[in-house]
Design a protein around this nucleic acid. Structure first.
Lengths: 184, 184
DNA sequence: TAAAGGAAGGAATGTCATTCGGAGCAATCG
DNA sequence: CGATTGCTCCGAATGACATTCCTTCCTTTA
């Protein structure tokens, strides 16, 4: 019979207290750019053998670091050249259920609740300006939607999924004198 | 010697005048959700043999419909739990070169120029609020950046890459009477 | 110091991606 | 109207690669 306390400790170690060593981050960085790499090639780049990389990737998937592997489609080339960000101001709170229904549409790519002068932020990609109009019509059909502001994308300079790298320099050199809470 | 006119026609047919038949769209739809499917399984779902699917996928990649295959990383699980959309107001025009330099940072995931009351729209994901502050500091360090408005994401309800589906109903039922330009 | 857990490397095996050849079909041209 | 060309599909064969097993090494713990 396993010791429950120890089991929990091990699970914690597995699930959260594993701070992604350099090998993991290197593997994640490569896979975030090209998931079609073979484990052998991935091992070459990371300095590990193929089985070792396989083991780590399996763990990264199991622990949720890697959410999945997808093919990135080109919007214009697949018939949806219109990209827009839509800010939604809604009355009340918790009416998100209605907005989530819009997630069924393949045109809706992202739905976030945000802090700021707006409530919800949508990223939508559709076939034409008329389709965008139809989407806004559906938004306004929701009783809780008070107003929307659309930002139609003219040019996309960069668009990618989350990357593995972390720029530590961003956390240094604050605007004011550093507090003593986080000494070097 | 090939007929130039005919060659061009064929190339056009290959590069643009191929309107993605039902098989292609089905394949794209599946791969956009899970690129790890085997060609045999993909063939089952699309109603084709494995070599036929392989041929189509190769063509979809060659024609740019599929931009690549990537592993989707989980932001919080990989150490970057702070997601924000930053609107940038800049003076002048064509100063995007400076903004593109920020694309080097793995924290910057998207850079668009948009129509609306703002010029540029950035999607950034970073490790902490301090890192976000550091990123904004770098933005304001650019001489053309006049102001920014940040929308920090509180909850993400949906976040995915471009999908293959197109909701044709969105282009129907316009708000006003349909013009005679596009008769049924 | 001894023991145990975890991780990496090498080799073997199974699965799958990829290629090759042949057949059906449509459009085109004579 | 018939022949030909080009395209796409399928079945089989091959090769590469993912996946597993097992041994060894290292680190941690009692």
């Amino acid at each position: 019979m396993p010791n429950p306390e120890k089991t929990e400790a091990v699970q914690n170690k597995r699930q959260e207290a594993r701070p992604l060593d350099a090998f993991d981050r290197k593997i994640l960085g490569e896979l975030a750019v090209d998931a079609g790499l073979s484990y052998a090639e991935l091992g070459n780049r990371a300095g590990l053998s193929a089985p070792a990389v396989h083991e780590r990737v399996k763990r990264l998937r199991a622990t949720g670091r890697i959410r999945g592997t997808v093919a990135v489609l080109d919007g214009p080339a697949t018939g949806k050249p219109f990209l827009a960000f839509v800010h939604v101001d809604s009355t009340g709170w918790g009416k998100t259920q209605e907005l989530l229904a819009l997630s069924e549409l393949p045109e809706v790519e992202e739905v976030h609740s945000v802090a700021g002068d707006t409530c919800m932020l949508l990223k939508v990609r559709c076939a034409s300006s008329r389709a965008l109009e139809g989407l806004l019509a559906r938004l306004y059909a929701l009783p809780s939607v008070k107003a929307t502001r659309s930002y139609v994308v003219l040019s996309t300079f960069l668009e990618r999924t989350p990357q593995a790298g972390i720029t530590s320099a961003l956390e240094e050199a604050p605007l004011v004198a550093p507090s003593r809470e986080t000494p070097a």
